[in-house]
Each structure stands twice: as C-alpha cells, then as structure tokens.
Nucleic acid binder design. Sequence first.
DNA 1: AAAGGCGCCAACCGCTTGGCA
DNA 2: GTGCCAAGCGGTTGGCGCCTT
Length: 301
Amino acid sequence: MGRPPCCDKDSVKKGPWTPEEDILLVSYIQQHGASNWRAVPAKTGLLRCSKSCRLRWTNYLRPGIKRGNFTEQEEKLIIHLQALLGNRWAAIASYLPERTDNDIKNYWNTHLKKKLQYKLNDTSSEHCVNVGFGLPAVHRSMPKSKGQWERCLQTNVEMAKRALSKALSMEDPMGSSVMKSMKYEDSHLPSITYAANTENISRLLEGWMIKKKKVTSASTTISPKSSDNSSTSSQMSMSASNCIVSPPTLLGLEDYESALEGSPEATAQGPFQMLESWLFDESADGEEQQESFLSMVMDEL
DNA sequence: AAAGGCGCCAACCGCTTGGCA
DNA sequence: GTGCCAAGCGGTTGGCGCCTT
C-alpha cells in the first residue's frame, strides 16, 4: 500500500506551464488570494494538481521574484548561510528577498557546490577543516576520530559565526547591501528579470503589485522577507520565515554546546551571544530572540 | 552539419509538519 | 489522543539547449 497520489494522475497535466495556464492561475489568485490550493484546479479549469499550481505560483508567478543571474553578493550570502544552516533552502531563501528556495537550491547544486569543491581541492587537505567562507555545511567535513571531530566542530562553529558576522558586517559591502536592501526594500523596487514566458505575467501583475505595496509599505519589522511586496507573497513566505530558528539538525544539540564550551568564541559578547542562543537553545523562544538579534544588527547599521 | 555529451533548471515526488475536527 | 487533510519542504528527475568532437 503506497501513499495515495495527491491528485487523479490520469487527468492531470504535467510538464512545462504554458502562458495561458499562467494567466489563468494568476488571475484566479488576484481575485481569491493564494490559499486553498486544492480548489484552484477546479475553480480555474486548469488540468494541474494543486501542488503544481502552488509551486508554479510560489516559484515563478508570485510578484517580487527576481530571476536570472545571481549577483556576487547573493552568491556569497548563500554560501555563508549554507555553511550555517545546511541544506535548509527555505530558511536560506528567507534571507534572500526575491529569490525562491528552488532557485537557490538549483544554483547551489549546479554552480556553488562545484565551485567550492574546486576550491577545496585547491587548498591543503592537511587540516581537518578546510572550511573558510564558502564551505559546505558544518556537518559535511567531519573527520573520523573523536578528537579531530571535536576540534573540527569548534572550528566550524567559529567559522559559521565569522561567516554570519561577515555577512552582517557594516564594513562588508556585501553584508550591508543585503541587509539594507532588506530594510529598505519597499523604497526601491528591484529590477525584476522574469524568464521570457513569465514576462507578460509580470506586466499583468505590475498594477497589482503597486496596489499591494501601498498596503504593506507601512511595515518596518525586520525579519527575513518581512518586506515582501504583496500580502499574498507575505503569506507564502511566512512558513519559510518561521522555520529559520531551528539549529542544524544533523548534530546533536549537546554536541554543539559542548563544542562551544571549548571555544573561546563562546564567551563573545554582543550579537554573537544572542546568535548562539538563537542557534543552539531550542527551548528558548527562538522567534523572539531572532527578532531581537536582527533588530540589534539593524540598529547598528 | 550532425551526433553525442553535458549542464542547467523547471517541475515532480514523496516525506514531514501543522492545524483542525 | 488520533486521524485526516492541506501545505511546506528538500531531493530527484527529465527535457531542453549549448558545447564539443
């Protein structure tokens, strides 16, 4: 007994979406909002399953999505965040306004992973941690012996902290530009580079975006993707924002904490203290701490 | 010019999570 | 407490286009 299919597979269309389908979906969502996906195929007449509709909207049609080449800044931020969070693409995407988790995941798998592997091969393999900025996830480069493993872990934690520090640093043009763009996103619209087949849709949505932007521009809360351009897309990214507070899951919490005890950085003052408790203390109110951490960082900018 | 290889990315699959009755 | 359903998420796949021979 396998899992039942999410939809009636015989009558469901698969493969690339046509512009006509896109328009049907967009106009439905304009009228009814992006909720109750199960009803979407029936109401729109689309021969697609609800999941497919949701995915199409989330990844390509929703306003405010930037497509095309990743900037160097975005690339660096992805690398840093991947080192911190692992393959939690939704969490990473929550720090990159305008990019979807799918996009980031694809970019990581096709470009960044290879790039980093190449760099790693270039550098010495004698140290247990070849992890600088741009390293794979913390849990990836685990040496075999326990002593090595612990040293490695400590270094990784420190690296991760440094990576975030760099990403958030005022001095670092990348960090500041990213954070500032998060803060002031509402004041200047990004250059949207939709793929050819969605260009028309984006034009179609333009008026709607402007209308929605007026409603949301009052919001000044600093949290990942908090300044999404539309109320609908805010809805869509809500879950992604919510999930960023969990610590990496492949290593035990105790391991992280014991590793931190041995690290001089563990006693660091300022934002890192909050970052650490945010990262490592699951029992705490993570969301609240995350908010205050980010607010603190933003205040410093 | 043609064929095969390869990389990229849109879309799918299926597991997990959260909400509700 | 339990089961069901909808939605979220990450891994994987398949097709298309570009590159190389």
